[in-house]
C-alpha cells in the first residue's frame, strides 16, 4: 500500500519519528532505527564536553532525515540562533522549534514559537514546531510557513498519553497541515489511537528509550503506528449507543 507522507520535499514511508535522548547507551540507536523503521530522528545541540568523545551523529545512518531541536531556547531569538547553528553542520535544513519557559511541565510557548517559525521558514528551513494544541496558534504557524504542527499529547517524558485528544482532533480537522503528535505518548496503543484519529505521524523518545527492552518497544511502536494509520485509511465503523447484531436476526432454530 503506497501511503507516503510528504514533508519539506521528502517522501516518508514511515510515520514514526523518534528521538535520541535517554538511551542507556547510544550504541542502541542504530538498532532502534532499524526495528522502528523510522526515517526521521531528532537530536539536540549543546556545548561540546571536552571529556566526552561520543558523537551522536556517528550512530545515525545517513539515510535518516535529521531533525535538530531547539531545546534550551526560551525566546524566538534563541531558537533562531540554535537552528542556524544546527544547519551550519551541513546535515540538512529541518528544525523542530521548541521554545519553553515552563520548567515544571515543559509546555511550549506558542507565541515565541510562531515568531521563530516566521523567521526560519523565510530562511528556507523546513520548520516543525512543537506546540500546545490550540487552533489559532496552529493556523498562525501554518501562515508563518510551518511544514507541519507538532502538538503535545501530554508533557514531555510523562508517558501520560493523549490527554489533549479533543484539541488535537480539532487541529487535524481544521488546519489542513500534517499534525504530528509529539510528546507524552507512552504506549503503542496511544500511538495507534493518534493515527486512527488522522494524525500524520507521531514523534516519541522516552517511551522507547526507557522501556526495559527498547528494541522490542521500537518494533511495537512501528506496528502500532502502521495499524493506526491503516485503520484511519480504512474508515472506522460507526459508534452506536445500543447493540447492533452482527448475526442475522431471522431464521433462528426453533
Amino acid at each position: 500500500m503506497q501511503d507516503p507522507l510528504m514533508i519539506g520535499g521528502v517522501t516518508l514511508t514511515s510515520r514514526l519519528f523518534i528521538g535520541t535522548g535517554k538511551y542507556s547507551r547510544n550504541t542502541l540507536i542504530p538498532e532502534v532505527i532499524t526495528r522502528s523503521g523510522s526515517q526521521v530522528i531528532t537530536v539536540a545541540l549543546r556545548r561540546v564536553d571536552p571529556e566526552s568523545s561520543d558523537n551522536i551523529v556517528s550512530h545515525i545512518p545517513s539515510h535518516m532525515t535529521l531533525l535538530p531541536n531547539t531545546s534550551g531556547a526560551r525566546t524566538a531569538e534563541e531558537a533562531v540562533r540554535i537552528a542556524r547553528l544546527a544547519r551550519s553542520a551541513g546535515l540538512g535544513n529541518w528544525v523542530k522549534i521548541e521554545v519553553i519557559n515552563d520548567q515544571k511541565y515543559l509546555l511550549p510557548d506558542n507565541t515565541e514559537t510562531i515568531r521563530a517559525t516566521e523567521i526560519l521558514a523565510a530562511e528556507g528551513f523546513v520548520v516543525l514546531p512543537y506546540m500546545s494544541p490550540d487552533l489559532s496558534a496552529a493556523l498562525r504557524l501554518k501562515a508563518a510557513g510551518a511544514a507541519a504542527v507538532m502538538p503535545l499529547g501530554a508533557p514531555i517524558g510523562s508517558n501520560r498519553g493523549l490527554q489533549t485528544k479533543e484539541l488535537i482532533r480539532i487541529l487535524i480537522s481544521e488546519t489542513n497541515l500534517p499534525v504530528i503528535v509529539d510528546a507524552g505518548i507512552g504506549r503503542p496503543s496511544e500511538a495507534a489511537e493518534a493515527m486512527e484519529m488522522g494524525a500524520a505521524a507521531v514523534l516519541l523518545n522516552t517511551a522507547i528509550a526507557t522501556a526495559s527492552d527498547p528494541l522490542l518497544m521500537a518494533e511495537a511502536f512501528r506496528d502500532a503506528v502502521a495499524a493506526g494509520r491503516k485503520a484511519y485509511l480504512a474508515g472506522l465503523g460507526p459508534v452506536e449507543e445500543t447493540a447492533a447484531a452482527s448475526s442475522p436476526l431471522t431464521g433462528f432454530l426453533a
Partner: peptide
C-alpha cells in the same frame, strides 16, 4: 567562542 555539537535529544 562557543563550540557546540549534536547530542541525544527528543
Amino acid at each position: 567562542v562557543e563550540l557546540v555539537h549534536f547530542v541525544g535529544g527528543g
